[in-house]
Design a binder for these strands. Sequence first.
DNA 1: AACAGTGGTTTAATAAATGAACCGAAGGAG
DNA 2: CTCCTTCGGTTCATTTATTAAACCACTGTT
Lengths: 269, 269
Amino acid sequence: MSVVAKAISLLEHFSVQNPELGLSQLCRLAKKDKATTYRYLTTLESIDFVEQNPVSKMYRIGPAVLHLADIREQTVPRREGAIKPLEILAQATGETAHVSILSGNGLHALEACESMLHSTRAVIDLQKLPLHATASGICALAFGPADLTQIANTTLTQFTKQTAQDVETLARYISRVQQSGFGFSDRAFENDIVGFAAPLFDHTGQMAGTVAVAAVASRLTNALVDQIHNSLITASTSISHNWGGRVPTSIQTLWAQSSKSLAEKEMSI
Amino acid sequence: MSVVAKAISLLEHFSVQNPELGLSQLCRLAKKDKATTYRYLTTLESIDFVEQNPVSKMYRIGPAVLHLADIREQTVPRREGAIKPLEILAQATGETAHVSILSGNGLHALEACESMLHSTRAVIDLQKLPLHATASGICALAFGPADLTQIANTTLTQFTKQTAQDVETLARYISRVQQSGFGFSDRAFENDIVGFAAPLFDHTGQMAGTVAVAAVASRLTNALVDQIHNSLITASTSISHNWGGRVPTSIQTLWAQSSKSLAEKEMSI
DNA sequence: AACAGTGGTTTAATAAATGAACCGAAGGAG
DNA sequence: CTCCTTCGGTTCATTTATTAAACCACTGTT
């Protein structure tokens, strides 16, 4: 791990819940020496990646990232292209919908949209999502670059009793998703939430992210699952379109098959 | 300059005009060795600060900055607190208004708002502003931390014939601004633009940024200058309020005095 | 007064960054 | 076809910056 990565990984400890951190706190969180942490912070401060509250001496994320994020969103407008389909998805399903961006070594939640239909609903923190425990994550493992799986296999943090705890279980989850075309996670990240996801594609033809629905487990019915699947297909198709890509026919075929099998299952009930 | 700063300074070469850059281009821009630049880029890629277009092999700003910018804006909502006063300012003056954030070693343009009143108007690039050549910059030097002046003095890039080219001229500009309470720059950055600025304050009581109007020189009248000054006072007061601070009475006094002297000047005309 | 916290600084030991030279591939020009 | 340039990417001995223990100065508590 290079110095650059180590210094910047300090930034990962800042969050909406914890926007300002002191030197000592940061030392403990990063498990690093005080002198080193201090040097990192002053360096980051010199390039405006953090700034120091002059009275409390605490550090917070600096203004330089705003500028970079602006350039990114103006030239690769992921958020803009995702918002409307996301609202439609949330409204159609009555559950919380969110979009994540895939990037080399993980999945970043980009935007969430909560349905107003029910008073209980999932709340998505906009942060890095665990690959092995969320519908989006398993979807990324199923359809994204192969080297992601190695990253996922090394960090099987347990969140609930259902979280995949070994490589074999995770592999079974992944292969099921590769057959259905939908990411799926049954209370593996949060106790009462079931997740459904679909992959997104950009102009390069590669998988570029996921769109997902986080549903409250107690309200799930076969009809709702069906509705979520259909809405995910619509959302994935239009977001991929807005991102300059399109859903590969192989995935469309999977979706058509799993809709059919679902319909059959319902017929038999 | 530490490795961290050098690596991240690569990011400064990306812009809306030039969102994707190849390895060799970046080498030339950064005046760095190819091997070094390559290592920087792979490091930045590993932490999602840049991502590589898999087909063209070019690099662009990565998704990690979106997340950081989100946290920053959710916890220190500068942009949100600035937008409405900025729109009012642009509309009242008929010129382009913009807000910048002060940070240790410079001034970052945060948001610009163009008036639709005239077809010709100033366009503000959202980037780092030169301290010595803009109304906002001189305003920051006049009312911000003292060590900014040293930074400004070392980089007196010439933009127009009116740009301050020596420390004495700049000091004269600054002291004039310290007397009037308004940043001012007469065609020192762009040839036909006159800038007016007012300082902004946050909850720490320190200067936190500037709000400014970039006016087309050929349209300027005494009445418009008066209008701009008054609107800047309103804008600065309300943005500072939204940022959790307030304009110090010392500055309010300066404003009151310079309004009076302006009124007198107009009386005499 | 002793203690446990801060933020910040110095030190020799050590691990990391550096850049010239290099590779193979792709594209153009003669 | 060869020659030449430029591209992204790699190697390795040399140099340079990073590291972390110990240390200061300060503040509030017991």
